[in-house]
Design a protein around this nucleic acid. Structure first.
Lengths: 139, 139
DNA sequence: GTATCTGCAAAACATTTGCAATTCT
DNA sequence: AGAATTGCAAATGTTTTGCAGATAC
């Protein structure tokens, strides 16, 4: 990964976010792992390194990041919110079997969607569910 | 609306669902209102007519309907699940201002999506957020 | 020294579950 | 009677909030 603390710090500052130790760690986690984590995944992994970390801090950081357009919310899992530090337009695929989330790509202009003509679109969300290549093999 | 109790009853039976009074009312609500309601919207509206109705019954019915592929779940609103009796492939648009949910249409085969090639897709979900025609006028 | 950030505990939600009472056939 | 359905109350799980102590500028 081409990201170190200094780079992460710059990114946070550029988005008007004061780069506290916890925020740097949380944002670095999102950028490096690219695993579309839930709050609890971030919490469980980072508490190994930062034993005093609390879930509240993870929630606080993510809500701030979203407000500042540094991360997006993914609603692909029923009961928990997932987060993504890739804010460029893209979609997701979630494997019904293993739960893994993959990125998929599309171009907003080329989407053949009817019924949106009179609307001003601010956000586009696309996601799929099914079996990933690995889980097809097993089945 | 071309739906009456008898027709609704038939539809439930065809999907292996015993047509109890509550289930008929709840399914009829979805089919006739087409308003992509939350559990609470259904509950608040139907309790006028059925004073003994409980939220649990609404949850029970909707979960059964989903299991039997009679309704689909829509995850367009952050904090609550919405439901739709239109199970044909389509997407949604939610107005950031008034909260209204509109239907949009697309064709799965014609979607220019990259990254899905090796996956077996079972469900496709597409939704947008922005301003509906009415709310553009106000703003 | 004043703002901000953190973290605990409690609260606020939506949803599920256990179970007893009711209803349907 | 027997099986399914309903509905209350409690439990669950995620996210938010209030507030006190710690930290940063």
């Amino acid at each position: 990964m081409a990201t170190n603390h200094t780079q992460i710090e710059q990114l946070l500052k550029q988005h008007d976010i004061r780069p506290s130790y916890h925020r740097i760690k949380i944002y670095q986690y999102l950028v490096e792992k690219r695993n579309h984590p839930s709050v609890d995944m971030i919490y469980q992994d980072l508490i190994q390194e930062i034993p005093t970390l609390s879930r509240t801090t993870v929630y606080n950081a993510l809500n701030l990041f979203m407000e500042k357009n540094l991360v997006i919310m993914i609603t692909i899992a029923e009961n928990e919110t997932r987060y993504d530090a890739n804010v460029d337009l893209h979609g997701h695929f979630r494997c019904i079997n293993c739960g893994k989330i993959l990125d998929v790509f599309f171009n907003k202009e080329s989407l053949p969607i009817k019924g949106l003509e009179a609307c001003i679109v601010k956000e586009s969300h696309i996601y799929f569910k099914g079996y990933c290549p690995e889980c097809q093999a097993e089945a």
